[in-house]
Every structure is written in C-alpha cells, then in structure tokens.
Amino acid sequence: MKRFLLLFAALTGFSAPAHAYWEYGHETIAGIAYRNVTPQVRASIDRLLRNSALLETAGCPAKTIEQASVWADCIKTLGPRFSYAYNWHYQNVNICKPFDIKSNCPDGNCVSAQIDRDVKLLKDHGVPMRERIMALAFLVHFVGDLHQPLHAGDHADLGGNRARSNYGFYSTERLNLHTIWDGHLAERAISTLPVMVRVYSAEERAAMWGGTTEDWSRESWQVARDVAYASAFGGDACADKAPARGTLTPEAIDKLVEPARQQIMRGGLRLARLLDEALGPQPGA
C-alpha cells in the first residue's frame, strides 16, 4: 500500500510524504549494505533489530534493515516526540559558493555529524540497548540521505524542493528537482540492470567506500552542483540567466541514470563499511 501511495503521489505531481529517496532508494542502500557486511556484523544487526519493539514507535517498525532504513522518516508522523531530529536529514551547502560544511552544521545538527555520532553510539556497548537500536536505524537512513545529492547541495531552494522542474515529458506545477532525484530518477536508476543489491567484489568495495563523512559530503555536494542542478538548468544554475524552471530532457535523464546509480552504490557500500566498524570486533577488545 505504501508503494502504491508513493506511485500515486508521483503520477499526480505531489511530493512524497517526507521520504528522502522514498522507500525504494533507502531500502536498496540498506540491502546493499546488509549483503556486504561480515557475517558477524549481519548477525549483530539482526540481534539489535529483533529488539526494535524497545523503540516504542507503533506504526513505524524496524524489524529488518529495510524497515529500519525508512524508520527515521516514518517517525516524523509521530509529532513532537522526534521533532529534534528534523534537521539531521540534510546539510544544504550552497552550490554557488566554496564548499563549507562547518557553517552548515550548527551544533552537529546535520546529516554528516549525526552519522559520526551514530557510529560512536553503536560502538559503545555501555549505551542502553534502546539507544543503540535507534542509532542503527538513524545511521542506515542518514547514510542514504547523505548520498541523495540534494540533501548535500542547495541553491537557496531547500535542496531543490523549490526548484520547479520537468522530468522528460512529465510536467506539473508541483514537480521539483528534489522529488525527481528522490523518486523518479532513483526508481529509474535502481530498476536499470545490472541488479544493485548483491555482494560486491573486494575491488569494487575498495573503489567506493573510502574517505570520511566530510569527504562524502563534498562529493555529494559536487554531484548536486555539477550534475543535478547543471543538468536541469542549462549547465550552470548559478548563472544570472539560468532558466526559472528546470528541464530534464529524455536524453539528459538517460545520462543521469549512471550518476544516480553510483550514488546509491556508494551509499550502500559505505554504510557496510561503517556497520563493520561499529559492530565488528573493536581494536584492543
């Protein structure tokens, strides 16, 4: 039913109900990670999520890693209880200025800082079980958010939410660049063969999962600037004469499939690395 409602929202031009990458993207990133962690870490993930009832979030289950991947969006419907986490989903750095993560992450209230925090919480077995489960669910979701370029780059338009754009021959007043990357393009990229949720080779993992959250933030910001906005707004969204409404032609969409797939693969494999670091054997233990 959720998948049907999201499809209906897409076809009618309404934004999805606060699901960055919608369900399909987050679940795919989670699935890639789950298949690429060590067997011991996979068992630790399962053990934590078997106790997810401790979260006491009725209607927002987290019994599997796929459910956990959208839990952080689902809890937005629970009112003020989790309102403190709203700003943790993004860090919209201006694409028309030099990259600067620090000024866009006040007091750690941004997605990259929360990823680092969640890893620390998962490593600490002195943290109560409930808090570690919550850290796991947040981590799985936030790594997905960080790799959606329009959660990292911004043009004074709420990460593309106010950037009205056409998607091929599909155009409505409410369709925007953020929604396109969250849903329409993500669906196209994930559905394009070869299958993305699989075990990756050591060479593939090594090529994608290196770096820090700041490195990944800069990379996603560059994709937002040089790929997402540039493709929709005539090559330079920062130009004085950039069009008021973006347009992704069918030809442009074809060229965007691979960059979109790359971001999802990067997110999945980097999440796998972080989970191995957080839940695997600790140095000196």
Rank of each mutant, 00 (worst) to 15 (best):
F4Q: 12
L5K: 15
A9T: 09
T12Y: 14
F14V: 12
F14G: 08
A16I: 15
W22G: 01
G31E: 03
Q40E: 14
A43C: 13
I45G: 00
R47P: 01
L54M: 04
P61D: 08
A62L: 07
V70R: 08
A72M: 14
D73N: 10
K76H: 11
K76N: 13
R81E: 06
R81M: 06
Y84V: 10
W88Y: 08
W88F: 08
N92V: 09
N92W: 12
N94R: 13
P98C: 09
I101F: 14
S103G: 12
N104R: 04
N109K: 07
A113L: 11
Q114G: 05
I115F: 02
L122Q: 02
D124S: 04
R130T: 03
M134T: 09
H141E: 13
V143Q: 04
H147Q: 10
D154K: 00
D154V: 03
H155S: 08
H155D: 10
L158G: 08
G159F: 07
R164T: 11
N166F: 15
F169K: 15
H178W: 07
W181T: 06
W181R: 03
P194K: 09
A202V: 12
E204N: 02
G210R: 05
G211H: 05
T213M: 07
E214H: 13
V223F: 09
A228D: 08
Y229Q: 04
G235S: 06
C238H: 01
C238Y: 04
D240Q: 13
T247Q: 15
L248C: 06
P250E: 04
I253P: 06
I253L: 04
D254T: 15
L256Y: 00
Q262P: 11
I264E: 06
G280D: 07
Q282T: 08
